[in-house]
């Protein structure tokens, strides 16, 4: 075990073989280890998400965060790229799946890979982590407060993203879910529904729900940050990935 790590921007083939960039963080040493695909939130491939990516390297994983907005705005500042992506309708689900598949393949091709790769996503990325685990060969997936995995949008809501209820039968990896009980999207009822549906489908899952926490409780640079929930959440993520991605 080493606390040395390195991080850099790399290029990789995403959906349809498109060239995209990603932020790769790797522990020092040559020991075999699992890989983690970090799916950034809608505000983009930003500093906070790159810090999270480096933390997974510190935890002993090769971690890769693909820039989901790269095509729309190569080289742009993350917030500008996110704005362009949003103005064009956001990241299409099929393209997201292809980009995560590309990132997983990149991680498995690293000489240090033990062959196991998981995903984790925050906010919109939480939904995308579940989506990815329905279509990509992943060994574990983590959903951090992703909205619209279940639930019906409010009437009149100009939603462009469907829920994932019809795709849950295809979930192919154990799922860890971390949710705030003060969140409204996903609300506790949405989480109840997801829990019930996965149980009915016989899909292995583990949910942890935090009182006193709302949406984005992991986000250290936002007022939504909740220390107790985030600290426990990191412990849960660490244990979950150790179980499913460990050497």
């Amino acid at each position: 075990m080493t606390d040395s790590l390195s991080a850099r921007t790399v290029h990789l083939p995403g959906a349809d073989g498109d060239d995209i960039e990603g932020y790769l963080a790797r522990p020092g040493g040559d020991d075999p280890r699992g890989g983690v695909v970090v799916i950034h939130h809608m505000p983009g491939w930003d500093r906070a998400t790159k810090e999270i990516t480096r933390r997974f390297a510190e935890l002993g994983y090769d971690a890769l965060c693909p820039n989901l907005h790269y095509r729309e705005a190569p080289g742009a500042a993350p917030d500008d790229a996110a704005a362009v992506s949003r103005a064009r309708g956001g990241v299409p689900d099929d393209r997201l799946v292809g980009d995560v598949a590309g990132a997983a393949a990149y991680l498995r091709a690293l000489p240090t890979s033990n062959g196991r790769v998981g995903s984790i996503g925050y906010c919109s990325g939480g939904r995308q982590s579940v989506l990815s685990a329905c279509h990509v060969d992943l060994d574990a997936a983590v959903d951090c407060y992703g909205a619209f995995v279940t639930g019906t949008p409010p009437e009149g809501h100009p939603l462009q993203v469907p829920n994932l209820v019809d795709q849950l039968p295809r979930l192919r990896a154990p799922l860890l879910g971390l949710f705030g009980n003060d969140d409204r999207y996903p609300s506790p009822a949405h989480v109840d529904e997801l829990d019930r549906r996965l149980t009915d489908l016989g899909k292995p899952h583990e949910f942890h729900r935090y009182d006193g926490a709302g949406h984005a409780f992991f986000a250290v640079d936002r007022p939504s940050y909740v220390v107790a929930a985030a600290n426990d959440g990191w412990e849960r993520v660490g244990a979950f990935f150790a179980t499913h991605l460990g050497a």
Binding site: H41, M42, R86, A87, G89, G90, C123, S124, A147, F148, H157, P158, L159, Q160, V161, D183, R184, Y185, P186, H215
Partner: peptide, 9 residues
């Protein structure tokens, strides 16, 4: 939540 709701004019 991520509202995903975007109005463009």
């Amino acid at each position: 939540m991520c509202t995903y709701a975007t109005v463009r004019i």
